Amino acid sequence: MALVNATIAGRQFRLACEDGQEEHLTALAKDIDTRIIDLRRKFGEIGDTRLTVMAALMVADDLSESHRRIRRLEEEIQALQDARMVSSDRARAASDAVVGAFNSAAERIEGITKKLNQTLGPGAAIG
């Protein structure tokens, strides 16, 4: 377990985190401190508790907006995947239709060739 010293709202805090997460925790603490400093500039000295609550609400709002964006993106991804499946099915059907048309044409050509060979008689053959 690692320890990090962080300053938030002018106060020092010793915070514990998982090993390797020190930089991340320091950045999070700096973000909260910056929000509190900005709020203090906007509203003046309205009390550390109020400033901290307001900063927490700002973070919660950011998190809520991020969740909404993630849901929208997941819905878009699902719609794209559905469209891809429909498109793939259509392409497969079109490919099957083309193969069927070629096979049908080949059978007709073979039939015409047989008839021509029959009318030409023995010794003269086409194809």
Score class of each variant (00 low, 15 high):
38 D>M: 06
95 S>Y: 14
16 A>T: 14
109 I>C: 05
6 A>M: 01
19 D>W: 04
114 K>Q: 11
79 A>M: 08
96 D>K: 15
103 N>S: 07
127 G>D: 10
26 T>M: 04
47 G>Y: 00
41 R>T: 07
54 M>A: 06
123 G>P: 03
3 L>N: 13
44 G>C: 02
99 V>K: 15
107 E>M: 06
112 I>Q: 01
66 S>C: 09
40 R>H: 11
79 A>S: 13
36 I>M: 04
102 F>N: 15
76 E>K: 10
105 A>L: 12
74 E>C: 04
2 A>V: 09
85 M>A: 07
117 N>A: 02
127 G>E: 13
116 L>G: 06
51 L>W: 10
109 I>Y: 04
33 D>I: 00
99 V>G: 02
61 D>A: 03
92 R>F: 11
114 K>G: 10
58 M>A: 12
100 G>E: 15
110 E>K: 12
62 D>Q: 14
35 R>N: 11
88 S>H: 09
94 A>S: 10
7 T>S: 10
6 A>K: 03
68 R>Q: 14
1 M>H: 15
7 T>W: 09
118 Q>M: 05
38 D>F: 03
21 Q>S: 12
123 G>Q: 08
39 L>G: 01
29 A>I: 00
30 K>L: 06
48 D>C: 00
86 V>N: 11
120 L>H: 01
87 S>E: 15
21 Q>Y: 11
46 I>E: 00
108 R>F: 04
7 T>E: 12
127 G>H: 10
4 V>Y: 07
31 D>E: 14
71 R>Y: 12
71 R>W: 11
39 L>T: 00
21 Q>N: 09
102 F>G: 11
81 Q>P: 03
60 A>K: 06
105 A>D: 10
98 V>R: 15
26 T>N: 08
55 A>F: 00
13 F>P: 01
87 S>L: 14
98 V>S: 07
43 F>L: 13
119 T>E: 11
10 G>K: 02
91 A>S: 09
35 R>T: 03
17 C>Q: 09
24 H>M: 07
50 R>P: 00
37 I>E: 15
87 S>F: 07
